[in-house]
């Protein structure tokens, strides 16, 4: 018996990994991650750098950098009334849409969080606009806003409201696009906020009810504080989405009237793909990037704070 053990010990391979075995994890990881790494490099990081690069150049009609002009493209933009108009429209649009989307979705989620018979039906209806594409939504609203056959003014007429020049007037045009956008975005926000509501533990409400707390006390002392991370998440996402709006502008107004709805992405599109000004279009794109970056950093700051509190 002892002899056998000795033999085994003698033949046992020393338990020391060589380099090949040591890097096994690394090799598998690189292999599995490579599709993502390659795709992100080609379609996210490279084009981001290229866009920054192009923003310092004048380009030919095919998008090749032709002449280095430094910050000229940016200075040109900051000086142009058209750019100022576009920026003003972009921020005003965010102001019109973001608070409305969050508030309406929150309201709908509160309603749909009640435990009632048939509530599933309402939840599905409230989520439905998430399935609506921007093209389909914009075409439907184009019809609703139509000055002669549009039914919206007719319906408002029943409420005693005079006909509104929806897409024809430069002030109302931005409102019209905002209404379309609010409607389209409610589905997704509703879904996320409802999910957040359902994650709140029922025990809290139970004990509040035992203490005799009313609906609004529960709403402001339990629901809103505990839901605030979700609400903040939706706020930022909606904000970023509003900066990225394009399809509704393209179908409803084409940036008009008088450039009143020339939101930043539509301006990029026109600069690059209609006027072939890839340099200034890239400068606009870089500005968009920084706007979104600012919002994302705000989101991270908030998350950090949340971690501190816990």
């Amino acid at each position: 018996m002892n002899e056998v053990m000795e033999k085994i010990e003698r033949y046992q391979v020393p338990k020391k990994e060589n380099l090949w075995q040591k890097t096994a994890n690394l090799r598998t990881s690189i292999l599995y991650l490579s599709p993502a790494i390659v795709l992100f490099s080609v379609f996210v990081f490279y084009p981001m750098f290229k866009t920054v690069y192009l923003s310092f150049f004048l380009t030919d009609a095919r998008g090749n950098a032709a002449l280095f002009v430094g910050l000229e493209n940016y200075l040109y933009l900051f000086d142009s009334t058209s750019f100022k108009k576009s920026m003003k429209a972009t921020w005003l649009f965010a102001l019109y849409t973001v608070p409305s989307i969050v508030l309406i979705s929150f309201f709908l989620a509160l309603l749909a969080n009640e435990k009632l018979r048939g509530i599933g039906f309402f939840r599905t209806i409230f989520t439905s606009t998430m399935g609506m594409s921007v093209a389909a939504s914009a075409v439907i609203w184009l019809f609703l806003f139509h000055p002669t056959v549009g039914v919206l003014n007719t319906l408002l007429g029943y409420l005693g409201i005079r006909p509104i020049p929806w897409l024809l007037d430069s002030k109302w045009a931005l409102v019209s696009i905002a209404i379309t956008t609010i409607w389209m975005n409610i589905g997704f926000s509703f879904l996320i906020i409802l999910g957040g509501l359902q994650n709140i533990s029922q025990d809290l409400y139970e004990s509040a009810r035992i203490d005799g707390a009313g609906y609004f006390y529960q709403l402001f002392r339990i629901t809103i504080p505990l839901l605030s991370p979700t609400l903040f998440f939706i706020l930022i996402i909606t904000f970023i989405n509003s900066f990225q709006s394009f399809g509704q502008v393209d179908i409803l107004t084409k940036g008009g009237p008088a450039e009143a709805t020339n939101l930043i992405v539509y301006a990029i599109y026109q600069d690059a793909f209609i006027n072939y000004q890839f340099g200034t279009a890239s400068a606009r794109a870089v500005i968009l990037f920084f706007m979104v970056l600012g919002l994302t950093l705000l989101q991270f700051k908030f998350l950090e704070k949340k971690v501190h509190y816990q």
Partner: peptide
């Protein structure tokens, strides 16, 4: 990085 910020370069690619 918003997709719209990179679309010019992506289109050229």
């Amino acid at each position: 990085i918003p997709w719209e910020a990179t679309m010019i370069s992506n289109f050229l690619t």
